[in-house]
Amino acid sequence: MNARDRIRTGDATTPRGKGVKLIAHVCNDLGGWGKGFVQAISRRWPGPEAEYRRWHRERAGNDFGLGAVQYVQVGPYLWVANMVGQRGTRTGSKGVPVRYEAIDTALGVLAEKAAELEASVHMPRIGCGLAGGNWSRVEPLIARRLTGRGIPVTVYDHQG
Protein backbone atom coordinates (compact mmCIF):
# COMPACT_ATOMS: atom_id res chain seq x y z
CA MET A 1 0.00 0.00 0.00
CA ASN A 2 1.38 3.34 -0.94
CA ALA A 3 -0.10 5.31 1.93
CA ARG A 4 0.37 8.72 0.39
CA ASP A 5 -1.83 7.69 -2.55
CA ARG A 6 -4.59 6.10 -0.49
CA ILE A 7 -4.92 8.36 2.57
CA ARG A 8 -7.54 11.07 2.31
CA THR A 9 -8.88 13.72 4.62
CA GLY A 10 -12.52 13.00 5.30
CA ASP A 11 -15.03 10.81 7.06
CA ALA A 12 -14.78 7.04 6.58
CA THR A 13 -18.54 6.76 7.17
CA THR A 14 -19.08 8.57 3.87
CA PRO A 15 -16.74 6.63 1.58
CA ARG A 16 -15.95 8.03 -1.85
CA GLY A 17 -16.13 6.24 -5.16
CA LYS A 18 -18.45 3.97 -7.08
CA GLY A 19 -19.48 0.39 -6.54
CA VAL A 20 -19.78 -1.76 -3.43
CA LYS A 21 -17.94 -0.45 -0.38
CA LEU A 22 -16.91 -2.07 2.89
CA ILE A 23 -16.24 0.25 5.85
CA ALA A 24 -13.81 -1.56 8.15
CA HIS A 25 -13.06 -0.68 11.75
CA VAL A 26 -11.66 -2.33 14.87
CA CYS A 27 -13.78 -3.35 17.87
CA ASN A 28 -12.81 -4.71 21.27
CA ASP A 29 -13.42 -8.22 22.58
CA LEU A 30 -15.51 -7.07 25.58
CA GLY A 31 -18.72 -6.18 23.77
CA GLY A 32 -18.20 -2.49 24.52
CA TRP A 33 -19.21 0.06 21.90
CA GLY A 34 -19.06 3.69 22.86
CA LYS A 35 -15.88 5.62 22.09
CA GLY A 36 -13.90 6.47 19.02
CA PHE A 37 -14.90 5.74 15.43
CA VAL A 38 -17.89 3.63 16.52
CA GLN A 39 -19.66 6.81 17.59
CA ALA A 40 -19.53 8.07 14.00
CA ILE A 41 -20.90 4.74 12.77
CA SER A 42 -23.77 4.81 15.28
CA ARG A 43 -24.68 8.37 14.33
CA ARG A 44 -25.30 7.19 10.75
CA TRP A 45 -26.71 3.66 11.23
CA PRO A 46 -28.10 1.79 14.26
CA GLY A 47 -27.48 -1.66 12.76
CA PRO A 48 -23.72 -2.15 13.23
CA GLU A 49 -23.86 -1.42 16.97
CA ALA A 50 -26.97 -3.54 17.55
CA GLU A 51 -25.51 -6.45 15.59
CA TYR A 52 -22.11 -6.20 17.34
CA ARG A 53 -23.77 -6.22 20.77
CA ARG A 54 -25.92 -9.22 19.77
CA TRP A 55 -22.87 -11.02 18.35
CA HIS A 56 -21.03 -10.51 21.66
CA ARG A 57 -24.05 -11.44 23.80
CA GLU A 58 -24.51 -14.70 21.87
CA ARG A 59 -20.76 -15.42 21.63
CA ALA A 60 -21.09 -18.88 23.20
CA GLY A 61 -22.75 -19.99 19.97
CA ASN A 62 -20.83 -18.05 17.31
CA ASP A 63 -17.34 -17.02 16.15
CA PHE A 64 -16.99 -13.81 18.23
CA GLY A 65 -13.39 -13.33 19.34
CA LEU A 66 -10.09 -11.79 18.36
CA GLY A 67 -9.65 -11.88 14.59
CA ALA A 68 -13.34 -12.43 13.81
CA VAL A 69 -15.30 -10.18 11.44
CA GLN A 70 -19.01 -9.41 11.32
CA TYR A 71 -20.61 -7.78 8.27
CA VAL A 72 -23.65 -5.53 8.57
CA GLN A 73 -25.27 -4.22 5.40
CA VAL A 74 -26.29 -0.58 5.86
CA GLY A 75 -27.21 0.31 2.27
CA PRO A 76 -27.70 -1.34 -1.12
CA TYR A 77 -23.95 -1.14 -1.87
CA LEU A 78 -22.56 -0.41 1.59
CA TRP A 79 -21.44 -2.71 4.40
CA VAL A 80 -19.79 -2.14 7.79
CA ALA A 81 -17.21 -4.72 8.87
CA ASN A 82 -16.91 -5.02 12.66
CA MET A 83 -13.41 -6.52 13.14
CA VAL A 84 -12.43 -7.71 16.62
CA GLY A 85 -8.86 -6.50 16.88
CA GLN A 86 -8.29 -5.30 20.41
CA ARG A 87 -8.15 -7.02 23.79
CA GLY A 88 -10.12 -4.93 26.25
CA THR A 89 -10.32 -1.16 26.14
CA ARG A 90 -7.58 0.18 28.42
CA THR A 91 -3.81 0.31 28.42
CA GLY A 92 -2.51 -1.63 31.39
CA SER A 93 0.23 -3.97 32.53
CA LYS A 94 -0.15 -6.00 29.33
CA GLY A 95 0.28 -2.93 27.13
CA VAL A 96 -2.11 -1.25 24.74
CA PRO A 97 -5.39 -2.93 23.70
CA VAL A 98 -4.50 -3.35 19.99
CA ARG A 99 -3.69 -6.89 18.88
CA TYR A 100 -1.86 -6.78 15.57
CA GLU A 101 -2.21 -10.52 15.02
CA ALA A 102 -5.98 -10.24 15.37
CA ILE A 103 -6.11 -7.29 12.96
CA ASP A 104 -4.01 -9.28 10.50
CA THR A 105 -6.37 -12.26 10.75
CA ALA A 106 -9.44 -10.02 10.42
CA LEU A 107 -7.99 -8.27 7.36
CA GLY A 108 -7.47 -11.67 5.73
CA VAL A 109 -11.13 -12.52 6.34
CA LEU A 110 -12.14 -9.06 5.11
CA ALA A 111 -10.13 -9.58 1.91
CA GLU A 112 -12.22 -12.67 1.09
CA LYS A 113 -15.47 -10.75 1.54
CA ALA A 114 -14.19 -7.76 -0.46
CA ALA A 115 -13.19 -10.08 -3.31
CA GLU A 116 -16.58 -11.85 -3.17
CA LEU A 117 -18.47 -8.53 -3.31
CA GLU A 118 -15.98 -6.90 -5.70
CA ALA A 119 -15.84 -4.12 -3.10
CA SER A 120 -13.43 -1.39 -2.20
CA VAL A 121 -12.45 -1.05 1.47
CA HIS A 122 -12.66 2.21 3.44
CA MET A 123 -11.41 2.77 6.99
CA PRO A 124 -9.96 5.16 9.50
CA ARG A 125 -6.41 4.33 10.69
CA ILE A 126 -7.65 1.13 12.26
CA GLY A 127 -6.20 0.16 15.63
CA CYS A 128 -4.36 3.45 15.98
CA GLY A 129 -6.83 5.54 17.97
CA LEU A 130 -8.07 4.40 21.36
CA ALA A 131 -6.60 0.92 20.76
CA GLY A 132 -3.12 2.48 20.96
CA GLY A 133 -1.58 0.92 17.88
CA ASN A 134 1.09 2.28 15.57
CA TRP A 135 0.26 2.94 11.92
CA SER A 136 3.75 1.76 10.97
CA ARG A 137 2.69 -1.73 12.15
CA VAL A 138 -0.87 -1.66 10.78
CA GLU A 139 -0.17 -0.30 7.30
CA PRO A 140 1.96 -3.30 6.20
CA LEU A 141 -0.88 -5.64 7.26
CA ILE A 142 -3.28 -3.73 5.00
CA ALA A 143 -0.73 -3.86 2.19
CA ARG A 144 -0.24 -7.62 2.51
CA ARG A 145 -3.85 -8.64 3.06
CA LEU A 146 -5.75 -6.15 0.88
CA THR A 147 -3.87 -3.93 -1.55
CA GLY A 148 -1.40 -6.71 -2.32
CA ARG A 149 -4.38 -8.71 -3.58
CA GLY A 150 -5.57 -5.84 -5.74
CA ILE A 151 -8.35 -4.71 -3.38
CA PRO A 152 -8.67 -0.91 -3.45
CA VAL A 153 -8.31 0.64 0.02
CA THR A 154 -8.84 4.23 1.12
CA VAL A 155 -7.84 5.36 4.61
CA TYR A 156 -9.53 8.49 5.95
CA ASP A 157 -8.02 10.96 8.39
CA HIS A 158 -10.88 12.83 10.03
CA GLN A 159 -10.49 16.55 10.56
CA GLY A 160 -12.20 18.18 13.47
Results as ranks from 00 to 15, higher is better:
Arg87Tyr: 11
Glu139Tyr: 09
Glu118Trp: 06
Leu110Thr: 02
Arg99Ala: 15
Leu130Phe: 10
Cys27Tyr: 12
Arg59Trp: 07
Glu58Asn: 12
Val38Ala: 11
Ala81Lys: 09
Asn28Glu: 02
Glu49Lys: 12
Ala143Thr: 15
Ala143Phe: 13
Arg4Ala: 15
Leu107Trp: 00
Val20Cys: 10
Leu107Gln: 00
Val109Glu: 03
Leu110Tyr: 02
Lys113Thr: 02
Leu107Pro: 02
Leu66Tyr: 05
Ile126His: 06
Ile126Asn: 05
Glu116Ile: 00
Asp5Tyr: 06
Gly17Ala: 06
Val98Arg: 13
Val26Asn: 05
Arg6Phe: 01
His25Thr: 05
Asp29Val: 13
Gly34Lys: 07
Asn82Gly: 04
Gln70Lys: 12
Asp11Leu: 01
Leu78His: 13
Lys21Asp: 07
Ala24Met: 04
Val72Arg: 14
Gly32Asn: 12
Gly129Cys: 11
Leu130Lys: 02
Ala106Met: 01
Ile103Tyr: 06
Arg43Pro: 00
Asp104Pro: 01
Pro76Arg: 14
Thr13Trp: 04
Ile23Trp: 11
Gly88Tyr: 09
Glu139Phe: 07
Ile41Glu: 03
Thr13Asn: 06
Ala12Arg: 04
Arg87Pro: 08
Gly150Met: 10
Thr154Asn: 09
Ala60Pro: 09
Gly32Lys: 08
Val74Gly: 13
Leu107Arg: 00
Gly47Glu: 15
Ala81Asn: 07
Arg99Cys: 15
Pro140Ile: 12
Thr89Pro: 00
Val138Cys: 11
Ala60Asn: 12
Met83Ile: 05
Val96Cys: 11
Ser120Thr: 00
Gly17Phe: 02
Val72Gly: 11
